[in-house]
Nucleic acid binder design. Structure first.
Length: 776
DNA sequence: GGACTTACTTAGCAGGGACACA
DNA sequence: TGTGTCCCTGCTAAGTAAGTCC
């Protein structure tokens, strides 16, 4: 498979199509990634040969029983045959996977019977464990215990050198006991918790009117606005420098909603947004922001302490026996809606959320959160089949917003774990599914053909499912099932390749997906058929939607949805790329560059992009200057070494010998420094428009990364972000955390997918969860 | 529609470099 | 050479929009 996504932030739909090919550096990088990222095409030349040999044979019809027999036989075939077959399909997986014993692959968490599954009415919390509490391995059930008031919050900020109290320093040396939630029994029947207590949300501060000397002008004349109208005006003023305020839809929506907040007098007077002058307001807010930056240390510290206090009070909840961090305990403040892409609702007023709008979810027997004085909650609910703590309706899309737990929580961790387990199960049957959809390309029924081709695209290109969207409510974006004829171009031959499909559409967040992919002839012919007699705005897959597709996938494998293919292909691509790119002879920075390149291959596959940082060019320039300076330094050092050597040759004494050694060391040190700088420059350049974070946190099974780190003795914290190198992070990612590393290392000197993902290695989960928690 | 995950942007902070001075 | 301070830059994490799936 060739995954080669050329995509940009889509500001003007097709305008820059030609321009994008001009960036040679980027093209070069893509070429490299194109070569490197193709996990199912690692030996392209060979595969192409194979393809030429077998491309017709694979399409021969066969009856169902024959197919089943063949499937059975296929399971028994040798590794070589398997690889050959995979290559024919264009989906060659790492060879080590084939040798896995089949029964080892399924390790889905089996929900065990719980003590409280039947009747939870009597459930009372007794003692809350922090993450540091010891786990009673003999009794791993989530038992209610007493006295949870004494729980001390986990200190979030790491202590700087010298600030650490002696006791703490000492404590750091001792291995910390973690709450091993993955060793506990899981709830059944959709129950998410038995006990939930929290303090409710933190509301946005009330509006503070701007000072009298900050004026608003309409049509050149000063005008005092009512507090309601003034507040909304400040939202606009704060965004004055932003591109949003130049957009017609934004301005139109803002003005419409602003007028709703005006008094009748204001409404009568203010009729044209272009006559409004918000400059003084804008200047005032900029000055305020500047003043915040200029605050004294003490003032900043005070604010920090206050934030910390709020965090400690509202940022944690007690779920079952454990204190858990809440992700977003602050309710979104009012403001102007910033939809992405060409969102028809951008600029609309996001109203202020009040206690009367809020539904609080907690357990009956908990201490219910109190609404602010003089107010009341919309509702207090006790629904333990959901994970949210607080919800409210937002007014822009009419959807519900939630306050939920941090990724470090048990509830999120379990979900994450299940996600990767499902992806692992897909590994087991992906060949069968691929053969099935290949067969379906020949179906007499159009709906089946469409389903099969769509699934092929989802699998091959890691496309999203593509739900239907309400027209006019959101930006016009699509996924696989919602592709339209206008998003596809077909080329019988392009750039020396046959049967090329060109995709050009806006995906999630209005990020452009542009890709030219050579496909199998049958796919090509099918797409041609689907496009026949259709208008550009017609659906490509008119007999398909995501629920039909997912229903079909569910029949193929329990829990299988379109999304699982993305997770599976992302994780397996990482593993393949790590194997391919890691050079055992290279040093740590070079290996980390290899990891980032593997990560990048996944990000490209998933089309995870970012806007190039504003300071990118400048920072590259700075780095280049450093490199140049280092090069000069190196040639100086080499010259000095040469002269020291000559000197030593003449003098032949100990002193000059020592001088030569010292110069040698200096050269080595500078060489290493130069290498590090060059690696950094390469990494940064390659990462200009690619976002690694999303794939790292959401698609890559952390066990693969940790296995790789262990294999090559790379500190885990080098992979899961820099801030964790010091303080808590290094502890979390220490050897202790990885104590139950699985046994089987492969001949390739690399832990295989299966090897790492065996039962008992769930420690990895807590690493991911805690790394995420640290980031909070 | 509801619940949940995935996604990108950006404010603010941490940390490193430059410089002064002991 | 070590230490302290300031400033700049890159990175992180909060914030919240936009997906998926049931």
């Amino acid at each position: 498979m060739l995954v080669f996504v050329d995509s940009y932030k889509h500001k003007d739909k097709h305008k820059d199509k030609e321009h994008r090919h001009k960036d040679h550096k980027k093209d070069k990088e893509r070429e490299r990634l194109k070569h490197n990222s193709d996990h199912r095409d690692s030996d392209k030349k060979h595969r192409d040969k194979e393809k030429l040999k077998h491309k017709d044979g694979s399409d021969k019809p066969r009856d169902k029983d024959k197919y089943k027999d063949k499937e059975r036989r296929k399971e028994e075939k040798s590794l070589d045959v398997k690889i050959k077959k995979e290559k024919e399909n264009g989906f060659a997986s790492p060879p080590c996977i084939k040798s896995e014993p089949e029964n080892d692959f399924y390790h889905s968490p089996k929900p065990l019977k719980r003590e409280h599954d039947v009747d939870d009415s009597e459930f009372k919390p007794k003692k809350i464990k922090t993450e540091n509490d010891k786990v009673d391995k003999k009794a791993k059930k989530r038992r209610p215990e007493e006295d949870y008031e004494d729980i001390k919050p986990k200190k979030k900020t790491k202590d700087k050198k010298g600030d650490v109290p002696d006791g703490k320093k000492k404590a750091k040396k001792e291995p910390e006991e973690k709450w091993k939630w993955w060793e506990e029994e899981r709830y059944t029947d959709g129950v998410k918790w038995r006990f939930l207590e929290h303090k409710g949300p933190v509301f946005a501060p009330p509006y503070e009117p701007i000072p009298g000397n900050v004026r608003f002008y309409y049509d050149g004349k000063q005008m005092k606005l009512s507090p309601e109208a003034e507040e909304v005006a400040t939202f606009f003023a704060k965004m004055l420098d932003h591109e949003y305020t130049t957009k017609d839809i934004f301005r139109k929506n803002f003005f419409k909603d602003w007028r709703k907040e005006m008094t009748p007098e204001e409404k009568a007077k203010i009729t044209d947004l272009s006559k409004c002058n918000f400059t003084e307001m804008s200047v005032y807010f900029k000055a305020q922001s500047e003043a915040r930056k200029q605050m004294s240390k003490d003032e900043k510290l005070k604010i920090k302490e206050e934030n910390e206090r709020v965090l400690q009070e509202y940022g944690f909840c007690v779920m079952d026996n454990h204190k858990e961090r809440i992700a977003n305990f602050r309710i979104e403040p009012p403001g102007l809606f910033r939809g992405r892409g060409d969102h028809p609702k951008m600029g609309m007023l996001k109203r202020r959320i009040r206690p009367e709008d809020v539904i609080v979810n907690c357990s009956k027997d908990s201490k219910h959160p109190k609404p602010p004085p003089g107010t009341k909650w919309k509702e207090v609910r006790h629904d333990n089949k959901v994970t949210w703590l607080v919800s409210w309706n937002e007014n822009i899309q009419g959807s519900i917003k939630y306050i939920m737990l941090n990724p470090s929580s048990r509830i999120k961790g379990e979900k994450d774990w299940q996600k990767y387990e499902t992806a692992r199960r897909l590994k087991k049957c992906v060949d069968r599914i691929r053969n099935q959809y290949r067969e379906d390309w020949k179906s007499k029924e159009m709906r089946i053909r469409q389903r099969a081709v769509a699934l092929y695209f989802i699998d091959k290109l890691a496309l999203r499912a593509g739900n239907e969207k309400e027209e006019g409510e959101t930006a016009d974006t699509v996924g696989c099932c919602s592709l339209r004829v206008e998003h596809i171009n077909l080329y019988p031959e392009k750039d020396g390749q046959e049967f090329v499909v060109e995709f050009d559409f806006l995906g999630k967040d209005s990020i452009r997906y542009y890709n030219k992919v050579p496909v199998e002839k049958r796919v090509y012919k099918n797409v041609q058929l689907f496009m026949e007699n259709k208008q550009p705005e017609d659906d490509l897959f008119d007999r398909l939607n995501t629920s039909i597709l997912n229903k079909h996938l569910q029949e193929l494998m329990d829990g299988l949805t379109a999304k699982v293919f993305r997770t599976y292909n992302a994780s397996i691509t990482l593993q393949q790329q790590l194997k391919e790119l890691t050079n055992p002879d290279e040093n740590v920075p070079a290996k980390i560059l290899s990891y980032n390149r593997a990560n990048r291959a996944v990000a490209i596959l998933c089309n995870h992009q970012r806007a190039p940082p504003k300071t990118f060019e400048k920072s590259m320039q700075t780095l280049q200057t450093k490199i140049d300076a280092k090069k000069d330094q190196l040639s100086d050092a080499r010259r000095e070494l040469k002269s020291a050597k000559a000197d030593a040759k003449v003098r032949r004494d100990e002193k000059s010998k020592r001088a030569v050694e010292a110069k040698k060391k200096a050269v080595e040190r500078i060489e290493e420094q130069l290498m590090k700088l060059e690696v950094q420059a390469t990494d940064r350049e390659e990462n200009k428009q690619i976002a690694l974070g999303t794939s790292k946190l959401n698609y890559l099974d952390p066990r693969i990364s940790v296995a790789w780190c262990k294999k090559w003795e790379i500190p885990v914290e080098k992979i899961y972000n820099k801030t964790q190198q010091a303080g808590e992070g290094s502890k979390l990612c220490s050897e202790n955390t990885l104590q139950d590393e699985p046994q089987g290392k492969t001949d390739q000197g690399y832990l295989s997918w299966k090897d790492w993902l065996c039962e008992g290695s769930f420690q990895m989960w807590i690493i991911l969860a805690e790394v995420k928690a640290l980031a909070s």
